[in-house]
Computed example of a mutant assay.
Amino acid sequence: MVIKKPWKKILYENQPYPDNYTDETFLRDLRTNIKLVSLSEAIWGATLLLEEFCTVIAFVLIYVYLFNEWVRPEAIFNISSVLTAASFVLYRFLYTKDVKNRFGHDLRTVLIFVVFGYLFSPVLHTLTDTISTDTIYTMTFFMMVIHLIFFDYGVSAAVVSNSLSLSAAIFASICLASRLASAYHAFIFITVAIELFVLFPLLRSKVKSFYVIGSLFLFDAYFLMKSSMLFMMLFILTAVFINIGCPTFFIRYQKYKSNIYGPWDEAIVDDADDAINEQCNKVE
């Protein structure tokens, strides 16, 4: 009588068992739904979505105020520049190393953007001038939806694409810039778009606080109230649905999940954007 050796979950050793053989111990480590989300975690995740939604609303409000000439473009440029400079100092001195060398690189980048942005603003202002206004607004709406869908909210998922999300936001800003009064307005509007969609997310990824979302929410609600009470109410209802309604429904229905975790090897797909972000963090 031949006694077989005990079966092991290995591939580098010849065993007297078929390749697809498993014994009764294989499923001992089987677990189901071990990664349930708590209500506080769900609310915080929804807050990240609400934060970016408020950023998009602020972007649209700035366009509306510039388009209707309810505010001088210099005022928007000065306020946004002061806030960006203060945020830059906070980000560099608290969250990065080698501040002196990075400061010179950042200063050159800002000067290049300001010079070339101002020189090419007449081109950007007339780039989509021949397209109808309704088409411009429709494209802007869909670009903002794409931006919100593919934005990086800190969740490792295949749908996340920083490049696509940023490209959609910049394309929307170029589309809207053609409807402003002058190339100078277009330059300021695109500058604010860069600050909101390129620089602001970098700071928010480090400063994770409810003060940021609170300030954004109050800013949007106040200026929506001055322009339209109906839109302000819709904005508040949407914010409540995102930050309270969605987490509540998620927690209520996550018990119906049927995710299994066991001793088998699971395939993991690497995201190209994640690899790029890791390299950028190492450089900083």
Rank of each mutant, 00 (worst) to 15 (best):
A169I: 03
L176R: 00
I174Y: 10
I149F: 02
T140N: 12
D134T: 09
L148K: 01
S156T: 08
I136F: 12
A86Y: 06
L119C: 04
V89I: 11
A158L: 13
L148N: 00
F113A: 13
R108L: 15
T96S: 10
M144Y: 03
V145G: 04
F116Q: 15
T96D: 06
S87C: 12
F141W: 05
G104M: 10
R108V: 13
V99F: 13
F141L: 07
T135S: 08
L166E: 07
T126W: 04
A169V: 03
G154W: 02
L111V: 14
L107F: 15
C175Q: 12
A158I: 08
D106K: 10
L164C: 10
A169S: 04
V145S: 02
G104D: 10
P122T: 00
V155T: 00
T138P: 08
S167G: 12
Y153I: 01
F141R: 05
N162K: 12
I131V: 15
F88C: 12
F113T: 09
V99N: 12
P122K: 06
A158Y: 06
F151V: 01
T130D: 10
D152H: 00
G104S: 05
H147I: 01
S156P: 05
D106G: 09
I174T: 11
G154S: 11
L148C: 01
S161E: 08
F120Q: 04
H105T: 12
A85S: 11
T133G: 05
T109M: 08
L94V: 15
V160C: 05
M139S: 11
T84W: 11
A86D: 03
V89E: 15
S163K: 01
T135K: 08
R108D: 11
T96K: 06
I146Q: 00
S167W: 13
L111G: 06
S173N: 07
V145D: 00
L107Y: 12
L90E: 04
F103I: 09
G117Y: 02
F103M: 15
L111M: 09
K97V: 14
Y137L: 13
T133F: 03
V145I: 14
T84V: 07
G154D: 02
V155L: 06
A85H: 04
F120I: 06
I112Q: 12
A172S: 07
Y137H: 01
A85N: 13
L164S: 05
L119Q: 07
S165D: 00
F113Y: 14
Y118R: 00
T133H: 09
C175V: 06
